[in-house]
Protein backbone atom coordinates (compact mmCIF):
# COMPACT_ATOMS: atom_id res chain seq x y z
CA UNK A 1 0.00 0.00 0.00
CA UNK A 2 1.43 3.37 -0.94
CA UNK A 3 1.67 5.76 1.99
CA UNK A 4 3.00 8.84 0.20
CA UNK A 5 1.96 9.89 -3.29
CA UNK A 6 3.67 12.70 -5.14
CA UNK A 7 2.15 13.83 -8.42
CA UNK A 8 3.69 16.25 -10.94
CA UNK A 9 5.36 18.26 -8.20
CA UNK A 10 7.29 21.29 -9.45
CA UNK A 11 8.87 24.26 -7.76
CA UNK A 12 10.11 27.45 -9.36
CA UNK A 13 12.10 30.00 -7.41
CA UNK A 14 12.01 33.57 -8.61
CA UNK A 15 15.40 35.24 -8.53
CA UNK A 16 16.59 38.75 -9.32
CA UNK A 17 14.83 40.57 -12.20
CA UNK A 18 11.98 38.06 -11.97
CA UNK A 19 14.13 35.29 -13.44
CA UNK A 20 12.69 31.84 -12.68
CA UNK A 21 14.79 28.89 -11.62
CA UNK A 22 13.16 25.46 -11.63
CA UNK A 23 14.36 23.57 -8.54
CA UNK A 24 12.01 20.61 -9.00
CA UNK A 25 10.48 19.43 -12.23
CA UNK A 26 7.34 17.26 -12.43
CA UNK A 27 8.29 14.79 -9.73
CA UNK A 28 6.15 11.66 -9.57
CA UNK A 29 6.70 8.91 -7.04
CA UNK A 30 5.07 6.71 -4.45
CA UNK A 31 6.49 5.44 -1.19
CA UNK A 32 5.23 2.10 0.13
CA UNK A 33 4.24 1.47 3.72
CA UNK A 34 7.04 0.15 5.94
CA UNK A 35 9.88 0.69 3.49
CA UNK A 36 13.05 2.74 3.81
CA UNK A 37 12.96 4.85 0.70
CA UNK A 38 16.24 6.43 -0.35
CA UNK A 39 16.04 9.85 -1.96
CA UNK A 40 19.40 10.76 -3.38
CA UNK A 41 21.06 13.24 -5.60
CA UNK A 42 23.95 15.70 -5.67
CA UNK A 43 23.75 19.04 -3.89
CA UNK A 44 21.07 21.22 -5.47
CA UNK A 45 19.26 18.24 -7.01
CA UNK A 46 15.93 19.19 -5.38
CA UNK A 47 15.89 16.76 -2.43
CA UNK A 48 15.46 19.35 0.31
CA UNK A 49 13.02 21.31 -1.86
CA UNK A 50 10.83 18.18 -2.06
CA UNK A 51 10.98 17.69 1.70
CA UNK A 52 10.15 21.34 2.33
CA UNK A 53 7.11 21.07 0.07
CA UNK A 54 5.96 17.93 1.89
CA UNK A 55 6.20 19.84 5.18
CA UNK A 56 4.48 22.99 3.77
CA UNK A 57 7.58 25.03 4.59
CA UNK A 58 7.45 26.12 0.96
CA UNK A 59 4.57 25.87 -1.51
CA UNK A 60 4.75 24.03 -4.84
CA UNK A 61 4.42 25.92 -8.12
CA UNK A 62 2.35 23.00 -9.41
CA UNK A 63 1.48 19.42 -8.49
CA UNK A 64 0.27 17.81 -5.32
CA UNK A 65 1.16 15.23 -2.71
CA UNK A 66 -0.93 13.06 -0.40
CA UNK A 67 -0.10 11.14 2.73
CA UNK A 68 -2.43 8.20 3.37
CA UNK A 69 -4.74 9.79 0.78
CA UNK A 70 -4.97 12.94 2.87
CA UNK A 71 -3.93 16.43 1.83
CA UNK A 72 -0.59 17.45 3.35
CA UNK A 73 -2.07 20.22 5.54
CA UNK A 74 -4.44 17.72 7.09
CA UNK A 75 -1.71 15.08 7.50
CA UNK A 76 0.51 17.61 9.28
CA UNK A 77 -2.29 18.66 11.60
CA UNK A 78 -2.90 15.00 12.41
CA UNK A 79 0.82 14.65 13.23
CA UNK A 80 1.34 11.87 10.71
CA UNK A 81 4.75 13.15 9.64
CA UNK A 82 7.95 13.22 11.71
CA UNK A 83 10.81 15.32 10.42
CA UNK A 84 14.46 15.63 11.17
CA UNK A 85 16.24 18.48 9.36
CA UNK A 86 19.73 18.48 7.90
CA UNK A 87 22.35 19.81 10.36
CA UNK A 88 19.69 20.27 13.00
CA UNK A 89 19.92 23.34 15.19
CA UNK A 90 17.47 23.08 18.01
CA UNK A 91 16.62 25.33 20.93
CA UNK A 92 19.98 25.27 22.65
CA UNK A 93 18.70 26.71 25.92
CA UNK A 94 16.48 23.67 26.55
CA UNK A 95 17.61 20.43 28.15
CA UNK A 96 17.01 17.20 26.21
CA UNK A 97 14.10 16.40 28.47
CA UNK A 98 12.48 19.86 28.12
CA UNK A 99 13.06 19.82 24.37
CA UNK A 100 11.11 16.60 23.83
CA UNK A 101 8.33 17.66 26.19
CA UNK A 102 8.02 20.93 24.25
CA UNK A 103 7.50 19.09 20.96
CA UNK A 104 5.14 16.60 22.59
CA UNK A 105 2.97 19.41 23.97
CA UNK A 106 3.13 21.20 20.63
CA UNK A 107 1.52 18.18 19.04
CA UNK A 108 -1.25 18.13 21.63
CA UNK A 109 0.06 15.38 23.91
CA UNK A 110 -1.15 16.02 27.50
CA UNK A 111 1.56 17.06 29.99
CA UNK A 112 1.75 13.69 31.85
CA UNK A 113 1.89 11.70 28.63
CA UNK A 114 4.49 14.11 27.25
CA UNK A 115 6.79 13.27 30.14
CA UNK A 116 6.31 9.53 29.61
CA UNK A 117 6.94 9.84 25.87
CA UNK A 118 10.05 11.95 26.43
CA UNK A 119 11.39 9.41 28.96
CA UNK A 120 10.81 6.50 26.59
CA UNK A 121 12.37 8.23 23.56
CA UNK A 122 15.40 9.41 25.50
CA UNK A 123 16.06 5.76 26.30
CA UNK A 124 15.42 4.65 22.70
CA UNK A 125 17.99 7.11 21.31
CA UNK A 126 20.44 6.46 24.15
CA UNK A 127 20.32 9.93 25.71
CA UNK A 128 18.83 9.02 29.07
CA UNK A 129 22.07 10.08 30.78
CA UNK A 130 21.92 13.54 29.14
CA UNK A 131 18.27 14.34 29.84
CA UNK A 132 19.15 17.29 32.10
CA UNK A 133 21.99 18.58 29.91
CA UNK A 134 21.29 21.61 27.75
CA UNK A 135 21.35 20.96 24.00
CA UNK A 136 24.06 23.63 23.69
CA UNK A 137 26.37 21.16 25.48
CA UNK A 138 25.46 18.19 23.25
CA UNK A 139 27.90 16.73 20.71
CA UNK A 140 26.86 16.62 17.04
CA UNK A 141 25.92 12.95 17.34
CA UNK A 142 23.80 13.66 20.40
CA UNK A 143 22.01 16.53 18.59
CA UNK A 144 21.23 14.15 15.72
CA UNK A 145 19.87 11.56 18.15
CA UNK A 146 17.68 14.09 19.99
CA UNK A 147 16.51 15.27 16.55
CA UNK A 148 15.46 11.74 15.72
CA UNK A 149 13.64 11.47 19.05
CA UNK A 150 11.85 14.74 18.28
CA UNK A 151 10.74 13.38 14.91
CA UNK A 152 9.34 10.29 16.64
CA UNK A 153 7.47 12.07 19.41
CA UNK A 154 4.07 11.84 17.70
CA UNK A 155 4.58 8.25 16.63
CA UNK A 156 4.30 9.33 12.95
CA UNK A 157 3.53 7.02 10.05
CA UNK A 158 6.11 8.69 7.84
CA UNK A 159 9.54 9.82 8.95
CA UNK A 160 11.35 12.35 6.77
CA UNK A 161 15.09 12.28 7.48
CA UNK A 162 17.09 14.94 5.66
CA UNK A 163 20.79 13.99 5.60
CA UNK A 164 20.58 12.42 9.07
CA UNK A 165 24.21 11.32 9.09
CA UNK A 166 25.74 14.49 7.77
CA UNK A 167 28.88 15.43 9.70
CA UNK A 168 28.80 12.40 12.02
CA UNK A 169 31.87 10.29 12.80
CA UNK A 170 31.83 6.54 11.92
CA UNK A 171 30.56 5.55 15.38
CA UNK A 172 27.81 8.17 15.28
CA UNK A 173 26.78 6.99 11.80
CA UNK A 174 26.62 3.40 12.91
CA UNK A 175 24.44 4.37 15.88
CA UNK A 176 22.01 6.26 13.66
CA UNK A 177 21.98 3.36 11.16
CA UNK A 178 21.11 0.95 13.97
CA UNK A 179 18.32 3.27 15.10
CA UNK A 180 16.92 3.44 11.58
CA UNK A 181 17.01 -0.38 11.34
CA UNK A 182 15.20 -0.54 14.66
CA UNK A 183 12.52 1.84 13.33
CA UNK A 184 12.07 -0.31 10.23
CA UNK A 185 11.42 -3.30 12.48
CA UNK A 186 8.72 -1.20 14.13
CA UNK A 187 7.13 -0.88 10.65
CA UNK A 188 7.86 2.83 10.26
CA UNK A 189 8.03 4.21 6.74
CA UNK A 190 11.22 6.20 6.30
CA UNK A 191 11.96 8.73 3.58
CA UNK A 192 15.72 8.88 3.74
CA UNK A 193 17.26 11.81 1.97
CA UNK A 194 21.03 11.73 1.51
CA UNK A 195 23.94 12.07 -0.84
CA UNK A 196 26.03 9.59 1.16
CA UNK A 197 25.61 6.61 -1.13
CA UNK A 198 27.09 3.96 1.16
CA UNK A 199 24.40 4.75 3.75
CA UNK A 200 21.63 4.56 1.16
CA UNK A 201 22.97 1.23 -0.14
CA UNK A 202 23.11 -0.22 3.36
CA UNK A 203 19.71 0.98 4.51
CA UNK A 204 17.29 1.40 1.64
CA UNK A 205 15.18 -1.01 -0.33
CA UNK A 206 14.01 1.36 -3.05
CA UNK A 207 15.61 4.56 -4.20
CA UNK A 208 14.92 7.57 -6.37
CA UNK A 209 17.80 9.49 -7.92
CA UNK A 210 17.29 13.16 -8.53
CA UNK A 211 19.48 15.45 -10.60
CA UNK A 212 18.89 19.14 -11.36
CA UNK A 213 15.30 18.81 -10.23
CA UNK A 214 14.53 15.81 -12.46
CA UNK A 215 13.90 12.22 -11.43
CA UNK A 216 16.54 10.20 -13.28
CA UNK A 217 16.02 6.74 -11.77
CA UNK A 218 13.48 4.98 -9.57
CA UNK A 219 13.68 1.34 -8.48
CA UNK A 220 15.04 -1.13 -5.94
CA UNK A 221 18.74 -0.97 -5.10
CA UNK A 222 19.14 -4.48 -6.59
CA UNK A 223 17.42 -3.55 -9.87
CA UNK A 224 19.55 -0.46 -10.21
CA UNK A 225 22.82 -2.23 -9.47
CA UNK A 226 21.93 -5.17 -11.73
CA UNK A 227 21.20 -2.76 -14.57
CA UNK A 228 24.86 -1.70 -14.56
CA UNK A 229 27.86 -3.69 -15.85
CA UNK A 230 28.84 -6.76 -13.77
CA UNK A 231 31.97 -8.88 -13.65
CA UNK A 232 33.43 -11.82 -11.73
CA UNK A 233 36.46 -11.71 -9.46
CA UNK A 234 38.43 -14.96 -8.98
CA UNK A 235 41.08 -15.07 -6.22
CA UNK A 236 43.89 -17.59 -5.65
CA UNK A 237 46.51 -18.12 -2.91
CA UNK A 238 50.22 -18.71 -3.64
CA UNK A 239 50.34 -19.00 -7.42
CA UNK A 240 53.51 -20.21 -9.14
CA UNK A 241 55.05 -17.68 -11.58
CA UNK A 242 54.08 -19.93 -14.54
CA UNK A 243 50.43 -20.20 -13.49
CA UNK A 244 50.29 -16.45 -12.78
CA UNK A 245 51.61 -15.72 -16.27
CA UNK A 246 49.15 -18.12 -17.90
CA UNK A 247 46.11 -16.81 -15.98
CA UNK A 248 47.12 -13.20 -16.62
CA UNK A 249 46.91 -13.86 -20.33
CA UNK A 250 43.43 -15.37 -19.98
CA UNK A 251 41.92 -12.83 -17.54
CA UNK A 252 40.46 -9.41 -18.31
CA UNK A 253 42.47 -7.91 -15.46
CA UNK A 254 44.80 -8.86 -12.64
CA UNK A 255 45.74 -7.40 -9.24
CA UNK A 256 47.40 -8.48 -6.00
CA UNK A 257 46.42 -7.54 -2.45
CA UNK A 258 48.12 -9.02 0.64
CA UNK A 259 49.47 -12.15 -1.06
CA UNK A 260 46.13 -12.89 -2.78
CA UNK A 261 45.97 -12.62 -6.57
CA UNK A 262 42.64 -11.43 -8.02
CA UNK A 263 41.65 -11.99 -11.64
CA UNK A 264 38.77 -10.26 -13.38
CA UNK A 265 36.51 -12.35 -15.62
CA UNK A 266 33.88 -10.85 -17.90
CA UNK A 267 31.21 -13.55 -17.30
CA UNK A 268 30.55 -16.84 -15.53
CA UNK A 269 32.05 -19.08 -18.28
CA UNK A 270 35.14 -16.94 -18.40
CA UNK A 271 35.52 -17.22 -14.61
CA UNK A 272 35.06 -21.03 -14.71
CA UNK A 273 37.76 -21.34 -17.36
CA UNK A 274 40.16 -19.40 -15.14
CA UNK A 275 39.38 -21.67 -12.18
CA UNK A 276 39.81 -24.88 -14.21
CA UNK A 277 43.13 -23.70 -15.65
CA UNK A 278 44.49 -22.76 -12.22
CA UNK A 279 43.31 -25.94 -10.51
CA UNK A 280 44.85 -28.11 -13.26
CA UNK A 281 48.18 -26.59 -12.22
CA UNK A 282 47.60 -27.25 -8.52
CA UNK A 283 46.62 -23.72 -7.49
CA UNK A 284 44.22 -23.25 -4.53
CA UNK A 285 40.98 -21.28 -5.20
CA UNK A 286 40.28 -18.76 -2.47
CA UNK A 287 37.12 -17.04 -3.71
CA UNK A 288 34.92 -16.50 -6.77
CA UNK A 289 32.33 -13.74 -6.57
CA UNK A 290 29.99 -11.69 -8.72
CA UNK A 291 30.72 -7.95 -8.50
CA UNK A 292 27.80 -5.71 -9.44
CA UNK A 293 29.55 -2.41 -8.86
CA UNK A 294 28.51 -0.04 -6.13
CA UNK A 295 25.75 2.50 -5.98
CA UNK A 296 28.45 5.13 -6.05
CA UNK A 297 29.76 3.83 -9.38
CA UNK A 298 26.21 3.79 -10.76
CA UNK A 299 25.53 7.28 -9.44
CA UNK A 300 28.72 8.76 -10.87
CA UNK A 301 27.99 7.09 -14.21
CA UNK A 302 24.34 8.24 -14.38
CA UNK A 303 24.56 11.68 -12.84
CA UNK A 304 28.05 12.44 -14.15
CA UNK A 305 27.00 11.67 -17.75
CA UNK A 306 24.23 14.26 -17.50
CA UNK A 307 26.48 17.09 -16.28
Amino acid sequence: MSILRIQNLSKDYVGGWGRKHRALNNLNLEVEEGEIFGFLGPNGAGKTTTIKILLRIIFPSSGKAWLLDKELDEALKMHKIGYMPENPYFYRFLTGDEFLKFYAQLTGVPREDAKKKADRLLKVVGLDHARRTRISDYSKGMVTRIGLAQALITDPVLLLLDEPMSGLDPIGRKEIRNLIHQLKEEKKTIFFCSHILADIEMLCHRIAILNKGNLVKLGTVKEILDSGPTHYTVSFDDLSPETLAQLSQLAAGVGEYGGVTNFTATDHDHARKLVETAQAQGARLREMRLDRGTLEEYFVREVGSRE
Binding site: L76, P85, L106
Partner: peptide, 9 residues
Protein backbone atom coordinates in the same frame (compact mmCIF):
# COMPACT_ATOMS: atom_id res chain seq x y z
CA UNK B 1 14.01 25.83 14.03
CA UNK B 2 10.71 26.91 12.49
CA UNK B 3 10.83 23.86 10.17
CA UNK B 4 10.30 21.38 12.97
CA UNK B 5 7.63 23.61 14.54
CA UNK B 6 5.63 23.68 11.29
CA UNK B 7 6.27 19.94 10.79
CA UNK B 8 4.81 19.38 14.27
CA UNK B 9 1.47 20.62 12.98
Amino acid sequence: TIYTIIASG
